[in-house]
């Protein structure tokens, strides 16, 4: 997993030049965050779906599949929340900079 540095000079330059002009090959913080959110959403959806299939008596859905799906969703959401907290922390740190 590649997490873009928050205070990289290229990123700051890109922000000044306009958010639409991203340097080629660079991962925007917003993009990686959106992807983490998407992953978490997908994992959560899979977990709900497998729990539902298990409850309906789907013979192909074992207990461990349901547990694993919910564990994955748990991890993905925790990762997303942690990434969000770190990003917000960095943002607040920047905003509190004395000039």
């Amino acid at each position: 997993m590649n997490i873009a540095p928050i205070i990289s000079p290229e990123l700051l330059g890109a922000t000044r030049a306009g958010a639409s002009e991203k340097p080629a090959g660079k991962v925007d913080l917003a993009d990686s965050f959106a992807k983490a959110l998407q992953d978490a959403h997908g994992a959560e959806h899979t977990a709900t779906d497998s729990a539902e299939r298990f409850a309906k008596g789907d013979s192909g859905m074992g207990i461990h599949e349901v547990m694993i799906a919910s564990e994955k969703a748990n991890l993905a959401i925790r990762y997303m929340t942690t990434a969000k907290n770190k990003a917000l922390e960095a943002y607040r740190e920047l905003m509190n900079t004395q000039v």
């Binding site: 599949e65 694993i68 991890l75």
Partner: peptide
Amino acid sequence: MSSMDFFTAMEVSASGLSA
């Protein structure tokens, strides 16, 4: 998710559990 994070280990274990 990248291919070699912990989810891969989980997928492998899951296939073993099903077997």
